[in-house]
Design a protein around this nucleic acid. Sequence first.
DNA 1: AATGAATGAGCCTTCATTCAT
DNA 2: GATGAATGAAGGCTCATTCAT
Lengths: 231, 231, 231, 231
Amino acid sequence: MPRKKPLPTKERIIDVAGDIFGKNGFKAATIRQIATAAQANLAAVNYHFRDKEGLYRAVLEDTFSKGFHRFPYRKNPEESNAPDQQLHSFIRAMFHRFLNNEGWGGISGRGKLIAREFFEPTPAFEPIVDTYIKPHKEILVSIISDLSRGKAGMDKILPCAISIIGQCVYYTFAAPVIQRIAKEFLPTQENIDLLADHVFWFSLGGIQQINTRPVDKKTPIVLNTLQEKHP
Amino acid sequence: MPRKKPLPTKERIIDVAGDIFGKNGFKAATIRQIATAAQANLAAVNYHFRDKEGLYRAVLEDTFSKGFHRFPYRKNPEESNAPDQQLHSFIRAMFHRFLNNEGWGGISGRGKLIAREFFEPTPAFEPIVDTYIKPHKEILVSIISDLSRGKAGMDKILPCAISIIGQCVYYTFAAPVIQRIAKEFLPTQENIDLLADHVFWFSLGGIQQINTRPVDKKTPIVLNTLQEKHP
Amino acid sequence: MPRKKPLPTKERIIDVAGDIFGKNGFKAATIRQIATAAQANLAAVNYHFRDKEGLYRAVLEDTFSKGFHRFPYRKNPEESNAPDQQLHSFIRAMFHRFLNNEGWGGISGRGKLIAREFFEPTPAFEPIVDTYIKPHKEILVSIISDLSRGKAGMDKILPCAISIIGQCVYYTFAAPVIQRIAKEFLPTQENIDLLADHVFWFSLGGIQQINTRPVDKKTPIVLNTLQEKHP
Amino acid sequence: MPRKKPLPTKERIIDVAGDIFGKNGFKAATIRQIATAAQANLAAVNYHFRDKEGLYRAVLEDTFSKGFHRFPYRKNPEESNAPDQQLHSFIRAMFHRFLNNEGWGGISGRGKLIAREFFEPTPAFEPIVDTYIKPHKEILVSIISDLSRGKAGMDKILPCAISIIGQCVYYTFAAPVIQRIAKEFLPTQENIDLLADHVFWFSLGGIQQINTRPVDKKTPIVLNTLQEKHP
DNA sequence: AATGAATGAGCCTTCATTCAT
DNA sequence: GATGAATGAAGGCTCATTCAT
């Protein structure tokens, strides 16, 4: 049964804009490029989204919305709630959200869009933080807390959370560097689960270490290599 | 005592270009902006560097050169060579390279320059990889190998290296996100060493976990939350 | 008693278009602006008036039609036909037509529409000239002729007519300048009759002077300030 | 002796921009049109004047500056200071400033530029008012005062000044209307002095009338033609 | 070594208009 | 009678680059 009508112009534009904004960044991407790729008129962008920025906002929202909708993390009530299992699920879902490219570009498309927002957010990112990022973080925090049997304070939990997310993000978004120095660990559809496993175990060890390290024991290491050299 | 003479035009341009390319990216940064900030003529950039891209190359080389020169990692012959100490040194040096901003902008200047190259490298990055990144990676690899008493293969060492670098990079470059969700762990001059400590301990635990994990034990966890939803 | 129904779309558009064309001129006014202000669909203008220009034509006709209908000049049969009285009436009616803003914007609405047509007429103005301007001029000519007891030729009458109309027009349309250099004589609802009086007396004196000046007496004044300076 | 080099780009642009802004108004004029006519590159406008608006400002200043410089009004010390002579000079200079088109367009060029500013001033006009218009007005005020032997107050002088300027302005700028209803009085190089003479005599009569009219005598005329008709 | 003037390419946006419904 | 979607044309502006001096 054939598809009756192609996607309407508006959605077609969002679709290709995701890739193009992702690959080139907001500034370098041109709406000409986008309109052409979407087989739409140049002015259609302004008609539907008012602005290049309006389009960008729509793309960003669409990206997160679809990403979290298709790869949600939710405690599975039918299975064991063991926190390590939850952590594993969480990490794996994150990898899949970043890398899976069914229809929308993965690492070389909308993924980079997200990366960019992470380290130089545009105004369009603000609502995304509230709607998607913060709740997501809370889940991770509660998992780590569980893993620590409730004994760890935020001073330990939050850095762990950052370490975990950092690995996921780096694995997926620093692909160009990884390719150059350790190309066998480039995230691909095939090894994505292996990588997620690695991050899971590595982080599990990390969390345990952080929780067992004696609080008062100051690092005794002398770091005289850090004596800054003066020019 | 002679009057310290101002930097010559060429260096002045490199200097401000570092910040501006960093803050805005290659495309969005404009030669006018740079020339104005450097109090140089608009045509001076093309005169000295032939190209906008030529300037960018110069800036990138300058950034890495100065970064590694001022915060080198070198085994300290006067102290214990214990590999955990070395790892600590390595991580700390990395943090300082990224964040220290004496003269060149730290997180909000040349730092972002590096981040960008990590996940969308320009042609100018290629020589940097060979000159700086690869040797740097080798050091880390050898430290991790030592930590594993030589028993770990590259299949374990490399992912660990990536996990470690990922944390460092994320901590420093995802600052905008961290500020929004865990602002007390924003890297600053004051807590930079604490953060480095955290990453050190977390990674130490991670490496140990990876090394002790039974190779054949497949993750038994059922991840049915990953059943992708179809639209 | 039935609810007064709102003006139909077509008239609503003409209404607001008068103001908008007046304030901004034909080119600068946009159909979007007009349609929005009239709470009509963007395409409605083209639907009802075919063209932006078609709408403009309709607006212009409407403006003059309403203006002359509401403030006609007609010899009043019940009163003295003294030509000075007629001149006074004529001038006063003109002021009122230009300035009165019951419903259609006065000086800052359709008034400026007329001003613009005076010094850069559009094709739409041509029929207006025949229908409204020329008959209006004839009335003034006949009044001036009467004031001269029929002794003045067109060579004297027409310039006087222009002088009179010029004053009225200038008073009303050069308001922005008047406000800056003599703001107490800005035409307002309150002093409009005083201004009309002034123009009346000034013009009366002017006409008399023109009629008494010896025809052959050439101005004897030496105007050496007019020796043009060369750059 | 041949002219060595053609006008530099910047001046060429100002030159043609005067005509084009005049003919079409700020909005409708395009910098493409201007650049083409000036045989300059499109970007030259932005280079030299930053903005379309910057160019407009330059044109306006240039217009007034040249106008007043070439046709100054200055009491001629060598001749009689009779105020009526002064008035004549003043009026004639004004006509020439508006109409003379040696090199810069007269009635159909920069003249309309001025007219437009009179009844819908742009921000660029503000400094012009202070620098040129106000001093110019003061001269006229003092002439009228002299004509009244110092007995007239501002309440009489200012309206007279407006009446005089109004005639001059209207004569020159309402040319399109004049052509349609009294084409023999279209201002041209040939009859410009005759028209100035007319305005002079008409205004002289007007001023005298205003000064002799009994202050308390209210106009007795019944203006029942002004009973507004209701729609 | 350095600069002011000028240029050509390209980008975002706006606008009047049309078309299918 | 009226509308939402879409379009082609054109406009202002920015930018990297070049060239004569």
